[in-house]
Design a protein around this nucleic acid. Structure first.
Length: 289
DNA sequence: AGGTCAACCTGAGCGC
DNA sequence: TGCGCTCAGGTTGACC
């Protein structure tokens, strides 16, 4: 689920369940997600207290009091469900009791805290990942070390982006999808940002300089902030950790709107879908140049 | 070195 | 109802 706004929404949803709580038990219901879990993963997590939850790119980072950091990537379909242990179904209800949480086919990890809360990680495609990393070597970790700047960081300016795009012969769409250029964007928000900046997704990345790069950076920041404020986008099975649905998907201008009219004032073009680097790109051929 | 593309995995949706 | 095909918010590693 998961581009930056969805990952940030999930992080925020995990804070009340995890921050300042101690991990009482960890159950792995299979030995791997995208990769095998690290050695003694469950045992090393058990007993540790979560000090804070951060996000870097599309990774959630839980800092533990033992000096290690739990890293989680949601892949395409990873999600967390939080089950408050104190909540009790009313007896005598005609409704079926919900299946025991954490026992579904794709419920791969169940973490229980000292508050009795169960945090269930499900990921039916298993493109997600978890690792446990000593805090002092975090920035050197294979998955983190090559990442580009955080798009919402004030240091991410038009000039900063232009410098990273300099000389790139690929399309601006592909470049923005590259986590080494800027971290956290994915297919939806790249399409939406390019539309807002009125830049063709096929434009040469290295040609995005000056005012064009500045407009693009402004559009990226704006669309990400709006999406975070909306609780992310809910497509298919994504929901926030509390089960609430994000609703930014209603604000998509181009993503998933092939053949529908462009919403720009006075524009009568229809949204087009092309494929770049094996991924669908949606754009307005009239507005974006 | 930089860029492109198939592969990883499962399920949903669609046409027949 | 069922089969086969395409597509899906991501990333990696092999290849040119």
């Amino acid at each position: 689920m998961p581009e930056l706004p969805e990952v940030e929404t999930v992080r925020r949803g995990l804070v009340p369940a995890l921050r300042h709580h101690r991990i009482k038990s960890v159950t792995l219901r299979r030995g791997d997600l995208r990769w095998p879990f690290p050695r003694d993963f469950a045992r090393r997590l058990t007993g540790q207290r979560v000090e804070r939850l951060e996000r870097r790119a599309k990774y959630i980072l839980a800092y533990l009091d033992g000096g290690e950091v739990l890293l989680v990537h949601l892949g395409m379909t990873g999600r967390f469900l939080i089950v408050d242990g104190k909540a009790r179904r009313k007896p005598g209800s005609f409704h079926h009791a919900a299946a025991e949480p954490g026992t579904g086919k794709h419920d791969h990890v169940v973490i229980e805290t000292d508050a009795g809360t169960k945090i269930v990680f499900s990921d039916h495609r298993r493109f997600g990942a978890m690792d446990l990393i000593p805090e002092q070597s975090l920035s050197a970790h294979k998955l983190l070390k090559g990442l580009g700047p955080e798009p919402l960081d004030p240091a991410f300016t038009g000039a900063a982006l232009a410098a990273r795009l300099d000389g790139k012969r690929t399309s601006i769409k592909a470049a923005l999808m590259d986590q080494r250029v800027v971290a956290g964007l994915g297919n939806i928000y790249v399409c939406e940002a390019l539309y807002r900046a009125k830049i063709s997704p096929a434009r040469l990345a290295g040609a995005c300089t000056g005012p064009r790069a500045a407009a693009l950076v402004a559009a990226v920041k704006k669309v990400l902030k709006e999406a975070i404020d909306s609780g992310g986008s809910t497509l298919r099975d994504y929901a926030q950790a509390d089960g609430e649905l994000g609703y930014f998907q209603h604000n998509f201008a181009v993503y998933g709107r092939e053949g529908d009219p462009c919403r720009a004032k006075g524009c009568h073009a229809r949204i087009r879908r092309i494929v770049q680097g094996g991924r669908a790109t949606f754009f307005c051929p009239a507005c974006q140049r």
